[in-house]
Design a protein around this nucleic acid. Structure first.
Lengths: 193, 193
DNA sequence: AGCCTAACGCAAAAATACTTGCTTTAAATT
DNA sequence: AATTTAAAGCAAGTATTTTTGCGTTAGGCT
């Protein structure tokens, strides 16, 4: 045989541990405060020993980084309600809810100059791109139905930006009603054009 | 005399220490890696004893929070051009520029991480409180002139939020033209009401 | 089925981070 | 300029976090 690497072993148990740990991180991030998260907590919740966490990930930041990159590659669906307003409202309300958990704060942080990925630098923009494509598809559907949709940029600026803004600066999420209000504003914008 | 409070003493030395610490934090934030920042480092750089940092700020997050709040309220003062549109455009363009500096990105990140009030203190969520007062004054001026200004919330959502959004998600600041376009959008909103 | 060893669990040690009691400095008050 | 006492300094604690050495478990291989 030629030059062998240490011969990793990513099979059964290792994968199981990884899954348990990831799940614990996401769960804790959903309920607990950001600052309260710690290696010790993740260990307790996941049933995986602290030592393992330290040996496999080294630091909490690296672990979170791992979790985030994994989840970012999974796209969550934009639904099709049949009308532009319906689609937009469903999306806006969904984001308003999602954005309330510390989990999204982490995503946010990762999105803007993410933490340091040790080895390769996995593309984070892909998430935004993918999501952007989905939203664009939603707008295209509306156009195909004969509606007069806004541009993607307008959607992002008028609806999405304020939702994130609320969380970052007011530290409180916008409610569903407020989210729908933003959609109103967006639609009013295109109606007058 | 009636019930006296502990009688604070914010004078000379205290202010000096505070200034030294703030300067150290900003410097370190500029050069050092994000995660490397620690109470110990700030203490060493500023020449202020660790104990003082712990006693005055409690945690690193609270300290950063303090620094960020201060700097955010200092930057981009609101000017009086005589018309609502003029004021808004001046402000929007100014923010678009400010937000382009690399240090702002750091502060933004810090803002997201730093905001969690430890026991006792009311949540210092609103970094823009002071700024909000200034902006409200600007809107009030417009109303006094007989113009029909938007609400503060509308201003924040329609103009400010997208400016920050650009930096965070597109990783590039909005140009002056774009900033003015946002002001147009805001004014169109109130015109139609 | 049996061997080899990567990956995990455990407990104890090492390293950091934070707190506490007391002393010293200097802002404010008289 | 003397007095008072918040706020800072210091050093010695306590607590928490991270590392380390070694025994155990269970993938992957023949």
């Amino acid at each position: 045989m030629e030059a062998e690497q240490p011969a990793r072993r990513p099979g059964g148990r290792t994968a199981r541990v990884r899954a348990a740990v990831h799940e614990a991180v996401v769960d804790l991030l959903r309920e607990e405060e950001w600052g309260d998260l710690s290696i010790a907590l993740v260990a307790e919740r996941s049933g995986v020993h602290q030592t393992t966490l330290y040996r496999r990930w080294g630091t909490l930041a690296a672990l979170i980084d791992d979790v985030v990159t994994e989840r970012l590659t999974r796209s969550s669906p934009v639904q099709d309600t049949g009308t532009l307003r319906g689609d937009l409202e469903a999306y806006a309300v969904q984001v308003a809810e999602d954005v309330a958990s510390p989990l999204s704060a982490v995503f946010l942080r990762a999105a803007m100059v993410g933490t340091h990925a040790e080895g390769g630098e996995p593309p984070r923009q892909i998430y935004l791109l993918e999501r952007g494509v989905q939203l664009q598809a939603m707008l295209d559907r509306a156009r195909d139905r004969g509606e007069n949709p806004p541009t993607l940029l307008e959607l992002l600026e008028v609806v999405l930006a304020p939702l994130y803004f609320h969380v970052i600066f007011f530290n409180s999420p916008a409610g569903a009603d407020h989210a729908r209000g933003l959609v109103d504003r967006l639609l009013a914008l295109t109606a007058s054009t």
